[in-house]
Design a protein around this nucleic acid. Sequence first.
DNA 1: GAGGTCGATCGCCATTCTCGATCGGGAGGA
DNA 2: TCCTCCCGATCGAGAATGGCGATCGACCTC
Lengths: 314, 314
Amino acid sequence: MAIDLTAVTLAELRYIVALSEHRHFGRAARACNVTQPTLSAQLQKLERTLGIALFERSSKSVQPTAQGERVIEQARLVLDATDKIRDIAESGHLPLAGPLRLGVIPTLGPYLLPHFVPALRAEYAKLELVLREVKTSELLDDLAQHRLDCGLLATPIPIPGIVSEELFEEPFHVLAPKEGALARKKQLAEEDLAGERVLLLDEGHCLRDQALSLCRAAHAHESQQDFRATSLETLRHMVAAGMGVTLLPALALRRDEGALVALPFEKPSPGRRVTLAWRKTHPRAADFRELAQFIRLNLPPSVRAIAGKPRVRG
Amino acid sequence: MAIDLTAVTLAELRYIVALSEHRHFGRAARACNVTQPTLSAQLQKLERTLGIALFERSSKSVQPTAQGERVIEQARLVLDATDKIRDIAESGHLPLAGPLRLGVIPTLGPYLLPHFVPALRAEYAKLELVLREVKTSELLDDLAQHRLDCGLLATPIPIPGIVSEELFEEPFHVLAPKEGALARKKQLAEEDLAGERVLLLDEGHCLRDQALSLCRAAHAHESQQDFRATSLETLRHMVAAGMGVTLLPALALRRDEGALVALPFEKPSPGRRVTLAWRKTHPRAADFRELAQFIRLNLPPSVRAIAGKPRVRG
DNA sequence: GAGGTCGATCGCCATTCTCGATCGGGAGGA
DNA sequence: TCCTCCCGATCGAGAATGGCGATCGACCTC
């Protein structure tokens, strides 16, 4: 019959370590916040479980046996390991602490993250933020497969089991050459795109689909099927090369676009809603709501924050 | 308020490790020989104790959280350490296994140990025998101070708290030159020593005191105060050099003493009783009695074993 | 031999562990 | 859309156990 240690409590291991340090039942018991009979009984229980004597007792002295020394040594290792567990748990008590894997779509990451990540790191020193830039569909899959804790994206999320908070409304602008016909207007109506060659991103970017539906409504057409861009920066270069115009979300705009100009739409401007999403079952929803609010409070003026739902108070 | 982990059971750590392996409450519970409600409740208790979620549950899947992964990793280390504790305990279940520190007096060690130590090691493979050769008074002190588990010596033990079992009666012989007057007798009476110069060991050897009292009774006298020997082998050389005669315990005799002869006394021969001693409180008394019996069964014919007390059976 | 110290033991109470039964919710199929 | 199955959570009851104060027995000191 094998020895079954599952019923052993960490307290018992603490008892034998304390006893080997104090060599005295009463003092060791006091150090463990129990009474001497308790320590005595628990030690006997442990010795019965192990089937060996751990301490040699007499009225003069309490000494570990040779085997007891070995067991106590291992018990110390066990308690050290549990100290680490306590450390992990304690840092987890703080809001936004510990590991957090955040996915961001490529048309958002480079433009939104600089606005809040440095402040976030400064505010929450224990946060171990891991960022991953992936397209929407992959991001949702990573969420579902527990490879991400939460994600920043710009699509209404149709998947059951994924919940989200809206963060802000990001209007689209039309990026066009300063010298072109469009650039003469201060504000565009969607119909102004009619007939324009609109440069779009590669397949898989949600921004492509959003721009495409806008184009269809405005009777514009996608330009150059063979030259789909893989990033907004590429689009910018293509516009500068005179290949057409493109749509840029507000955060991607530069203060000075050089030979180009970013034209806003008339209100209500077309745009996209950026949300923070996570699995409905994720136990750290409170953290995510705090993160959402932190992002809202660190937005540039070019986008309009959407107020979070008021928190229910217990 | 700090987290108190003392109430945590090794079973709970086993639960979370099993759950991280099976990703399924029912199967993990079966692997731990408990029911699913038990595992569910215990996990919740542990999460409440730590204050953090360890697993994210949904009806589709059970996945550790990022913090949970870390805790589980530490839990594995804890369980590994407890496996070692079990190993220590299990080897301790065998008779005469594990560390055993045995003291032996110098006039006994070199002559008695070869008769039983090799066989002992062969018979009890798990025994980790540590031998220390020390004089009687130091041996008793080492016993009292827990530096030794038990000791082989040849004195009636007056110290309360030390108990012993007698192993055998070891007769003394007189070692004398073959050509001397004594050598003409086959057996000696104690009075035959009268007038002889008897070479003795240095202070501190119990054999010295025993020989000395025999000499006093026989009106012999100690020879050469300035040349007290530090070992029986030195005594042998001194006898061979014609400096006198000496007393040797039976086990120290050689089959062929060369130019010397070992003369027995008439029955009842003077001698000494060799005993195995240990602290009364030592929890491994059963081991020591088994060791005593093993020694008795491996004695050469030159000494007479003393039967051990019959064991009380439960 | 009286008093003091120490670990072991006893009896009792409060807590907790465990179980079978059941609930509630989500997924998949008819 | 409803039904059924599967999963983890919850409930209620009984058993087991941890903890305590009080006390014992052994031993040491004065």
